[in-house]
Design a protein around this nucleic acid. Structure first.
Length: 661
RNA sequence: GGGCGCGUAGCUCAAUCGGAUAGAGCAUCAGCCUUCUAAGCUGAGGGUUGCAGGUUCGAUUCCUGCCGCGCCUACCA
């Protein structure tokens, strides 16, 4: 709602400026005045125009305010300060519109692919992966709120060195055969009742140490990796077993947080279906790759990096080889990771000329989210005959941490050099910073922390060293902590009900925690902060919703019927209450902005702000004891609007509020 | 060396295209439960926005140079 009035105001201003001063301002900046009593919108262009028009900003503002005449939906314009133009809306009219449409957002209809999670299937998910998955899932929810059609993909690197490392662990450290590993996966007792991904977590860390012991050990790694890539041998079969079992665990872990997927493309199919061969042909034909004949990259097919000036040498012949070029095909003929990624992204845009086979892999059972249940498909060499179609999308968002920005840029550059400039422009590396541990947290967890690391602000998580906090462990800790609170507050409730509430609170706390930081801020993880349910947290927002619900429950009314009823809006003149309405009208605006900047934190901040404002309102105005019936109705409507929009904002973040807290 | 990012209150973080008095939470201190739930509310203290210049009516925001920190920069994947 907020957005519609804003565009009406700026459109009228632009028109008037053209007509009156013969200036065209395509982007008229709009702010909000510092206090709501000063108006809902603030325009600052008078300052900008001062020089051009040779008039004082305040004078310009005064002329415009005097001359422009009425604008629909607005009560009046005022000059403020040195030349601001503040616009006041007609509050009663706007309130009526908010009641109807609230923070609804415009529909778009584009087909978009979001790739997120993409955890190597060789160990348990940790807090860094949680940040990725929660950012990705929330971004998907934002896009869907905006009316986009989104496919969610989770890329599985099941033939990489990380999987090979765990296979080495099974084969050489634990001396296990394929059937031993099968038993380990099938029989919980065989792995000491630890989940298989936890088991692999420990094994993976051991293997890293074992490599250090001798060069022979290390040689096993390369051999195993090659075996896995080749296929048809025990190492490959163990790799397949383990990566599939661990992947299943990852899906279960993410499902606990209401994070879902549509398709799981795997590296094994990118290899076996020879995606690279097709990409290689295109890259050679268009001259994107060239065979280096000199220097350190002699014998490799390389590509120039984005931003480097390869054409700089026009006259000078003796420039030598571009040592900075990115190797795509090694001198032994094997393709690098970036090469495979280029092929994969050609497929995503429907530019490769080949498709995956598709097989059903995992099913989300019937629920509120999926009334008919939902299948997760996985890539296969030969798939099922009936399957949905993935790929061939208009835009891509890859949720990958900032450390991958270099390879990501290489892929984008390859698309551009291939002539797919439109696709390159619609390829977004949704980059975010890592989650690290504070030294204190590392010590708490029982890790040895060096003198040097003690002095740092944070220490990078390392799966290779087994250094980190597992996602399931964190979630369990959050649930346990929430459970204690719920048990003491609501002993009257049944046990499974209390458990359900504790889970909702834990998920709210975790998802909000991962979203409240802006993307390029490193999260220095600390249990104390992450386990907090007070202040700027998910439970704070959930609590505001519960309070809102309680009012209606005690009043014996449904929020919807109050909002649909007859309401006297004269009390919107009261600034503190009006501010609540105004904030409630801005969800659509916030989501738009969050999409445009790929910054989910805006939504988190918004939800907190709205919750805070509601809590404020809650204390200041006691609704059920209000004697004036008209005012009581209005206050109920105010609570209803705030609650409705807060519920929407939380649902964009994948958070639901429990019935009681 | 080059690329990307960061530096804001004791701590953790916000601040829309450059906009009005730089805001939250935590922590500290002082208050508020006979009320629709205190996972809450009110108030107080706490700032030379790393440093030095520049652009501008206006700079936390843009530019330049320093200082400090992190990540990336392999024919590993």
């Amino acid at each position: 709602m907020y957005r519609e009035l804003q565009s009406r105001l700026t459109a009228r201003m632009r028109e008037y400026l053209k007509q009156q001063y013969e200036v065209d301002l395509p982007n008229i900046g709009v702010d909000q005045p510092p206090q709501v009593q000063m108006g809902e919108y603030a325009l600052t262009f008078s300052f900008e125009l001062a020089k051009k028009l040779r008039k004082a900003p305040r004078k310009i503002a005064e002329e415009i305010v005097a001359g422009i005449g009425p604008i629909e939906g607005f009560e009046k314009l005022e000059v403020a300060g040195a030349g601001y133009i503040n616009a006041r809306v007609d509050r009663a009219v706007m309130a009526r519109d908010i009641l109807k449409s609230g923070g609804s957002v415009a529909a778009s209809g584009e087909k978009i692919l979001v790739e997120h999670t993409s955890i190597n299937p060789n160990k348990a998910a940790h807090i860094g992966h949680l940040r990725n998955a929660i950012l990705g899932d929330t971004f998907v929810r934002m896009l869907r709120t905006a009316g986009c059609h989104v496919d969610i993909q989770n890329y599985i690197d099941n033939t990489g060195v990380q999987v090979a490392d765990v296979v080495v662990g099974f084969l050489y450290l634990e001396k296990k055969s394929k059937s031993n590993v099968e038993k380990l996966i099938a029989d919980p007792a065989a792995r000491g009742n630890r989940p298989i991904d936890f088991y692999c977590w420990d094994l993976y860390a051991q293997v890293s140490g074992w490599y250090e012991q001798s060069p022979e050990n290390k040689a096993k790694r390369l051999k195993t990796l090659h075996d896995i890539e080749q296929g048809d041998n025990e190492a490959a079969e163990i790799g397949e077993l383990i990566s599939t079992a661990v992947l299943r665990r990852h899906l279960e872990t993410m499902q606990r947080l209401s994070i879902y997927y549509d398709f799981l493309p795997r590296e094994s199919e990118i290899l076996s279906l020879h995606f690279w061969d097709l990409a290689f042909e295109q890259l050679k034909k268009k001259g994107v790759l060239y065979l280096e004949t000199e220097g350190k990259n002699k014998g490799c097919w390389v590509m120039k990096r984005a931003g480097t000036k390869a054409t700089e040498v026009v006259a000078g012949e003796d420039a030598g080889p571009d040592e900075d070029a990115k190797v795509i095909v090694r001198s032994n003929g094997t393709v690098t990771y970036v090469g495979k990624d280029i092929a994969y992204h050609l497929w995503k845009f429907g530019l490769l000329g080949r498709d995956f086979g598709y097989r059903k892999f995992f099913r989300y059972s019937e629920s509120a989210v999926f009334p008919q249940g939902h299948d997760v498909w996985i890539s296969a060499k030969t798939g099922e005959s009936e399957h949905p179609h993935f790929g061939g999308v208009q835009a891509i968002y890859n949720v990958i941490d900032s450390r991958q920005s270099d390879p990501q840029n290489n892929v984008i550059e390859a698309l551009r050099l291939l002539g797919y400039t439109k696709q390159a422009e619609h390829y977004t590396h949704f980059s975010y910073e890592m989650v690290a541990l504070t030294p204190r947290c590392a010590v708490e967890l029982g890790y040895e922390v060096s003198e040097e690391d003690q002095q740092r602000a944070y220490i990078e998580v390392s799966g290779r060293k087994g250094f980190g906090v597992k996602a399931d462990d964190l979630l369990d800790a959050l649930i346990a902590s929430a459970q204690r609170e719920v048990d003491s507050r609501h002993p009257e409730l049944a046990e499974d009900e209390r458990r359900g509430i504790a889970e909702q609170i834990a998920i709210g706390a975790l998802r909000y925690f991962m979203l409240k930081f802006t993307k390029n801020s490193v999260i220095a993880f600390d249990f104390k902060e992450a386990l907090s349910f007070e202040g700027e947290t998910g439970p704070y927002c959930q609590y505001a919703v519960v309070r809102g619900s309680n009012i209606f429950r005690k009043a014996g009314l449904e929020p919807e019927e109050v909002l649909a009823g007859d309401i006297d809006f004269s009390a919107t003149a009261q600034d503190d209450i009006w501010e609540l309405w105004l904030t409630a009208s801005k969800l659509g605006n916030t989501v738009d902005q969050a999409i445009a900047t790929t910054e989910p934190a805006y939504v988190a901040k918004y939800a907190f702000q709205l919750a805070q404002m509601f809590n404020n309102f809650y204390h200041r105005h006691h609704i059920l004891t209000e004697q004036d019936e008209r005012r009581k109705r209005f206050l109920l409507a105010s609570a209803g609007i705030a609650r409705r929009e807060l519920v929407r904002a939380l649902s964009v973040m994948g958070i639901t509020a429990p019935s009681v807290m």
